[in-house]
Design a protein around this nucleic acid. Structure first.
Lengths: 166, 166
DNA sequence: CTGAACTTTCAAATAATTTTGAAAAATGTG
DNA sequence: CACATTTTTCAAAATTATTTGAAAGTTCAG
């Protein structure tokens, strides 16, 4: 397989993968493109490579910067912005996990905790309370474990997981 | 808060949460409805409760059954099907994790492993290879750990996580 | 076997999301 | 400051995903 074929396949796959997990396909493709680029790219180069409009490129680059997965840099004597991705895949992973925990797990925990004052003692109320309570507990446990994972040193995590698996 | 308000809030929240994670909003809402229902519900009751069409209800119920999150039952002397959800939230969680691992993690691992035969030795090829290789390794580790978690006894997992957190 | 009750299917309609592209805003250079 | 370059914005258009509803299919009691 040639490099270009490989790149295309990778970008396509990353886009599909992202869209299955609630991430905009194009955003994931821009990310993929930058992940495998040996140097930073301008908005025009990204538009060209992925065949997308300027507005779309801009929007998704801003989103990636917001997720701290992409940074921008300026080159001396050039007014354009150049973009590059965090290349350390471990960091990429923990960054994504940390952001999604914050953006999607924490809000639902808020809502769940607002559901603990239902009045009544019918079977219906009991089932509701029990379900909400169990989800609350598992969410809290998940939150704590993700917090720990995203905050800890990678060697500690790896060795812990290796121990778990043996 | 009354039970009905709580239910509405829970169903709405579960739907939003699902849609952020690549799951159809209505499917998540049907699931939420069944999670907090004290007894099994017919398609008509679900259509009524969520104000959705018969086709939509049917489609999402089949999908939930496919995910093994919902089961159907027949009541004596009644030709209708009745649906009920797995109520054990731990099981629900591990079931979802296991299914998504299979449906979305494994396919990308397939594609990644098909990308290891890129020819050349330019810097570009090296960056590509390194990135793909790192993602491959982290995917493999994630796969193993999720496999372990979804297959193990919950007490073992809980005690392991408690140890991790202390 | 018949027909009522129920379930499934799927083309068309609707809704939600994403993308475009051109205008406006911002930026940096001389 | 003037102006050329670059970035941002956002309403409209295009695309994608979801939902509807009616027809077809299935099941089962009599």
């Amino acid at each position: 397989m040639t490099l270009d074929e490989g790149k295309a396949k990778f970008i396509q796959a990353w886009g599909t993968f992202g869209s299955k997990w609630g991430i905009n396909r194009t955003m994931a493709q821009v990310h993929a493109l930058l992940l495998i680029a040996p140097n930073s790219l301008s908005a025009d180069e990204i538009m060209d490579a992925l065949d997308i409009s300027r507005g779309n490129a801009n929007m998704n680059l801003r989103a990636l910067i917001d997720w701290a997965l992409v940074m921008k840099e300026f080159k001396p004597g050039d007014r354009k912005e150049y973009f590059y991705a965090e290349k350390d895949i471990w960091k990429v992973g923990t960054q994504i996990v940390a952001q999604r925990k914050k953006r999607e797990l924490e809000p639902i925990r808020e809502i769940l905790s607002s559901l603990d004052n239902i009045e009544g003692d019918s079977e219906e109320v009991e089932v509701f309370r029990k379900t909400v309570h169990e989800i609350t507990e598992i969410s809290a446990a998940t939150d704590r474990i993700l917090e720990k994972i995203t905050k800890s040193d990678r060697n500690w995590i790896l060795s812990t997981f290796i121990k778990m698996l043996s």
